[in-house]
Design a protein around this nucleic acid. Structure first.
Lengths: 231, 231
DNA sequence: CGACGGCTTGAGGTAAGTCAATCCACGTGG
DNA sequence: CCACGTGGATTGACTTACCTCAAGCCGTCG
């Protein structure tokens, strides 16, 4: 690794954007000094910082493996990064078998989902969190071909759902009742039925980018066909 | 991938533990059917589910790469997994250069930190979250050799810190004042001084396992020397 | 039939949010 | 060297989202 960081460097001032949300990358950045932050700006103007990057941390391998960044990296204080050029990385990818690449890709998307969960907990209220989780699960079940409409078995208890969304079973139950009364969904007998997907997506303030469905390197290329109406 | 899943399988009933927290792994599990959850049980009896695993998701590559799991995986409904034996995976690792392995390891520890953040947000209050973040940063700065005592430059604004801990700058400021008044720490002029590391660790309910410091495959093996007193 | 696990409903209580004023340190220019 | 402006921190009064405890309900299974 050391030999890679001897190359080109770049220094960013406080609040400078190091890697833009949505960008496709030609190089990987390694923090040499300073402090940077992974963050996501939400539609309502709030922001969630998901991680701080200290010297020695890599900024954007996910952008490289997944093709597009699903969040932004900014300098907090003055920060200098080593730029590891595309060529160096490409040579790495060549040594990967397709299985290795699939594993790599899978862990990256897992992290992306974790980041989404952090945003949920940090900057969304109970309604939004529940809606977001349900909508995400709907898409994921669709993508793996476990359902073709807006219904799927979701065999968790309210207590488990509360543990996932970081709230009390009691409060979860209340909000669930609201969503039901509003005709958005029904969740009875361990089966979830989404009556109004568009409405659910709206209350969740859902953005699908973090699932990286467009570039699925996995076995099926027909994601659009399976979940296109939801994204 | 398909050819790997033709082998041995195992089925788990609801609430069965699929992979235990802290275990070292001999095989990787792939969810074939059912629903599983990554979760962590906290000392106060509460639990945080960090992700649901649907068919096609891998359970425990992190346990394989990082050596020990930092959380637990349980079946939610009846779940069957394909067991991919160690030998298959070892053969993968052989094709990795040490650089590839370093990258791999780095993304895995990143995910672990993300999971810690989810636990923070879901199951800890403002005090605990702030304390936890500060303590984690202290350790990370120590590990990369940026400080040797309990002081380090932490040049973020209160607003940024609030965005990271998922709260309001106002509330953050109040709690910060409490921690200061209690003599735990001081954070002035962008420099953090931890007066009482043990106390801070206690209010954070900090457990170091998720940082995977024991098995650092990175360039320095002297983590214990650098941060041993904190863990 | 009763028992049990899970869901629902209700009445308070508390942590954290909102809005807004004030304060303080620092930098800049007259 | 002081006046001023600015970004960030602090303080206060009030509101709200969510929690706690506790009782009641309902479907399932023995």
């Amino acid at each position: 690794m050391d030999e890679l960081v001897t190359g080109r460097r770049r220094t960013y001032g406080p609040r400078d954007v190091i890697v833009e949300d949505g960008s496709e990358l030609q190089e990987i950045r390694l923090v040499i000094s300073g402090l940077a932050a992974r963050s996501k700006d939400l539609s309502d103007g709030s922001r969630q910082i998901m991680a701080f990057l200290v010297p020695g941390d890599l900024c954007d391998i996910e952008g490289f493996v997944l093709r597009a960044m699903d969040h932004r990296i900014t300098a907090v204080s003055e920060t200098t990064c080593a730029l590891i050029p595309a060529a160096e990385i490409e040579s790495l990818l060549i040594e990967f078998s397709s299985l290795t690449r699939a594993l790599w890709w899978s862990t990256m998307t897992d992290s992306a989902v974790l980041r989404a969960r952090i945003i949920d907990h940090g900057r969304r209220d109970a309604r939004e969190r529940i809606a977001h989780l349900f909508y995400e699960m709907l898409i994921r079940y669709r993508v793996v071909g476990r359902t073709t409409d807006h219904t799927f078995p979701f065999p968790v208890t309210q207590e488990e759902l509360a543990d996932a969304t970081g709230m009390t079973p009691v409060h979860l139950g209340r909000i669930l009742g609201e969503l039901r009364d509003e005709g958005l969904l029904e969740w009875r007998r361990r089966v979830l039925t989404v009556h109004d997907p568009a409405g659910l997506k709206r209350v969740a303030r859902f953005e699908a980018d973090y699932l990286h469905l467009d570039r699925t390197e996995a076995r099926d290329g027909n994601v659009a066909e399976r979940a296109g109406d939801l994204i």
